[in-house]
């Protein structure tokens, strides 16, 4: 008898993704659904999706979702979590959403140590609106608003927001991963799982930054785009744990 060793997670609806072929968002959605299934938290999880390509994340993840205005996901999530601390609350945001428009609430939420899980998808461009420069765009990278390539002194330097958030006293766990090969995908799932556990143990602010391919706006094939993440993007944004101040919960320090 053949035994099924890989199947669609239950927390992922049956809908076909609207994402482009080879888009990293799709992989990250599946990993989130797998983690939610494995932790058994589907009935008490609330997600806050962004503006951007992932604006329709609620069509795919079978948990309660509440849309936020552009950049405001962490502010909305803070409200939900403070009113209902028994729920597991996560945001799902791109780099344009979190690292540009939502910088203020993101920095302050991390600094206050809000007990949230943040999934931060970094593909270096504004995807949905047609590939404009984002704060995370690499030096020299061509986008629709930097047709000759990004120049640091004119357009700003690439912003490593995760590293800034790691300095904030209230953040507990921050890791950067990628979804460009099976090995990195397994690591990303582990990081997402840990970021949920940190919240469920009441430890504080947890964020996973995931380097993800946007083949469409990079004008590359999915395979080339995944290579670019590993060989080029990861030199600017090195993978690994940026902060881990988690502790094993004990009776007097839960």
């Amino acid at each position: 008898m053949a035994q099924q060793v890989f199947k669609r997670p239950e927390s992922l609806k049956d809908n076909v993704f609207h994402y482009c072929p080879g888009c990293g968002h799709s992989i990250i959605h599946r990993l989130l659904a797998e983690v939610i299934d494995e932790l058994g938290i589907r009935e008490k999880t609330v997600g806050v999706p962004p503006a951007g390509c992932a604006v329709l994340a609620y069509n795919y993840l079978d948990v309660d979702m509440g849309e936020a205005p552009h950049g405001r996901a962490i502010a909305v999530a803070t409200g939900i979590k403070r009113c209902r601390p028994d729920l597991v609350v996560f945001t799902y945001q791109g780099d344009g959403d979190l690292a540009a428009i939502g910088t203020a609430e993101t920095v302050h939420a991390a600094n206050r140590g809000e007990c949230l899980t943040v999934i931060f998808v970094n593909n270096g461009v504004y995807g949905m609106t047609g590939g404009q420069m984002a704060p995370t765009t690499l030096p020299g990278q061509k986008t629709t608003t930097t047709p000759g390539g990004r120049m640091a002194l004119r357009d700003g330097h690439p912003l490593d927001l995760s590293r800034m958030l790691a300095l904030a006293a209230g953040s507990v766990y921050i890791e950067r991963t990628a979804v460009t090969s099976p090995k990195h995908i397994i690591k990303t799932k582990k990081a997402i799982r840990k970021a949920f556990k940190v919240q469920m143990d009441g430890q504080g602010f947890a964020l996973v930054e995931i380097l993800s391919a946007c083949p469409t706006n990079w004008k590359e094939t999915p395979i080339e785009a995944c290579k670019r993440v590993e060989q080029v993007v990861a030199t600017q944004y090195p993978l690994g744990i940026l902060k881990d101040a988690t502790h094993e919960p004990t009776a007097d320090n839960p």
Partner: peptide, 20 residues
């Protein structure tokens, strides 16, 4: 050999893997 690597990377969750 049912290693599941294809399913792990498939963005569209189009692959199911079976072991005999």
């Amino acid at each position: 050999n049912a290693c599941t690597l294809c399913a792990l990377i498939c963005p569209d969750v189009a692959i199911e893997v079976f072991r005999e």
